[in-house]
Design a protein around this nucleic acid. Structure first.
Lengths: 121, 121
DNA sequence: TTGGGTGTATTATGCGATGTAGTACACATG
DNA sequence: CATGTGTACTACATCGCATAATACACCCAA
């Protein structure tokens, strides 16, 4: 299984963050499912033409955030969500959302337009 | 007028971004109003115990984003919003919001809870 | 048992962004 | 003219990012 993630070397966003967030999105959107194996550090590095250490850093952060788990000798797999285990993360994300929404409102966007966009998810 | 912004030197977020976002929030929340003068680069630098160049960088970005305007010899002032002039910025912000909301939903938060939080704004 | 694939760790190096420091210039205002 | 403003530039130190190379421990199938 080859996973394709778009990496933009001109993007000021660090590569390991692009890899991390790219995989996170695939997990969130359901493309990658619980306990599914994702490419090894070396395979992913070769496919993206990136240093293995950089991939390793991305994987490590995903593990710290609870999105994957790594097993020495076997590989890296998608983790399952543990309900009620993410209060801090949820609080942090909610805070970010509210800050962005405040800015949108300042720019003239109405709450109704924002709600409509959310419903379309 | 002295403006207080919390700066955390241990925060990995660059100082100039903390200053930029701190001022942006004050503008968005209405604490600072259109055409109001904000402290000079040197004053702000002295108040926060930060190098003037760093403050200058924050002010410059705020000007680029359209939140303030700078007049040589006079000072820096809060800009007025130009309706219909911010489509790109709105699109970008909306995209970020949707991505965060998708992650919240993945973590088990319901749309209803998110909508409720937005209404409280 | 052995070899290849896995995660993990370490050291070294180059590069760019960040932040500081100092200096200088042009403009506005009293 | 003196002061305060934004602006510009150079120089320097530090840190994070990314690469490169190497090594070790583990799992599993041949």
């Amino acid at each position: 299984m080859i996973i394709i993630i778009s990496i933009d070397l001109k993007n000021p966003k660090p590569i390991f963050e692009q890899v991390r967030d790219g995989l996170k999105n695939l997990i969130i959107c359901g493309v990658l499912k619980t306990d599914e194996k994702i490419p090894s550090v070396r395979d992913m590095a070769q496919n993206l033409a990136i240093n293995p250490n950089t991939i390793q850093k991305a994987y490590r952060e995903l593990e710290t955030e609870g999105y994957v788990y790594q097993v020495t000798g076997k590989g890296t797999f998608v983790a399952s969500i543990v309900p009620g285990e993410n209060y801090e993360k949820i609080e942090k994300l909610m805070k970010e959302v509210l800050e962005l929404v405040r800015e949108l409102i300042y720019l003239g966007v109405t709450k109704e337009e924002i709600n409509a966009a959310l419903d379309r998810l």
